[in-house]
Amino acid sequence: MPIDAAKALAAEPRTGEISWTPKDVLLYHLGIGAGIPATDPDELRYTLESRLHVLPSFATVAGAGSPGVISGLSMPGVEVDLARVLHGGQSLTVHRAIPPEGKATATSRIAAVHDKGNAAVLVLRTDVGDPEGPLWTNDARIFVRGEGGWGGERGPSARLDPPAGEPDLTVERPVREDQALLYRLSGDWNPLHADPEFAKVAGFDRPILHGLCTYGITLKAVVDTLLDGEVGRVRSYDTRFAGVVHPGETLRIRMWRQEGAVRVAVSAVDRGDAPVLADTIVQHA
Rank of each mutant, 00 (worst) to 15 (best):
M1S: 15
D4M: 12
A5P: 11
A5K: 03
A5C: 10
K7M: 14
A11T: 06
E12Y: 04
P13M: 08
P13F: 05
G16F: 07
E17N: 08
I18F: 01
I18C: 07
S19N: 10
W20G: 05
W20P: 04
W20L: 10
T21W: 12
P22H: 06
K23P: 02
D24V: 00
V25F: 00
L26Q: 03
L27S: 01
Y28E: 01
G31K: 09
G35M: 06
P37S: 11
P37C: 10
A38Y: 12
T39P: 03
D40I: 14
P41Q: 10
D42Q: 14
E43N: 12
L44V: 11
T47Q: 09
T47C: 09
E49C: 05
S50E: 15
S50A: 14
R51Q: 15
R51K: 15
P56Q: 06
S57F: 08
F58K: 04
A59P: 07
S66V: 13
S66P: 00
P67T: 07
V69I: 13
I70W: 01
S71L: 02
V78S: 03
L82R: 01
R84C: 03
V85N: 00
G89N: 06
L92C: 11
T93G: 09
H95C: 08
A97T: 15
E101H: 06
G102K: 02
K103E: 15
K103F: 06
A106R: 02
R109T: 11
R109A: 14
K116L: 12
G117P: 07
A120F: 03
A120N: 02
V121H: 05
L122Y: 04
V123Q: 00
V123M: 01
V123K: 01
V128L: 00
G129H: 07
G129P: 00
D130G: 05
G133T: 01
P134L: 03
L135P: 06
W136F: 15
D139F: 03
A140Q: 10
A140N: 11
A140V: 12
V144S: 06
V144D: 01
E147I: 08
G148E: 08
G152A: 13
E153D: 15
E153S: 15
D161I: 03
P162A: 13
P163I: 00
G165L: 06
E166D: 14
L169K: 13
L169P: 05
T170M: 04
P174Y: 00
R176L: 13
D178S: 13
L181M: 13
R184C: 02
G187R: 10
W189Q: 14
P191A: 09
A194R: 08
D195G: 08
E197P: 01
A199Q: 08
G203I: 08
D205N: 13
P207T: 09
G211R: 04
L212P: 04
Y215W: 14
Y215F: 14
I217L: 07
K220C: 01
K220E: 08
A221E: 12
D224G: 02
T225A: 02
T225L: 02
T225W: 08
L227G: 05
V231I: 10
G232E: 12
T239K: 07
F241E: 02
A242P: 09
V245R: 05
P247K: 05
L251E: 06
R254I: 00
Q258G: 15
G260Y: 09
A261M: 10
A261C: 14
V262H: 00
V264S: 08
A265F: 05
V269S: 07
L277N: 02
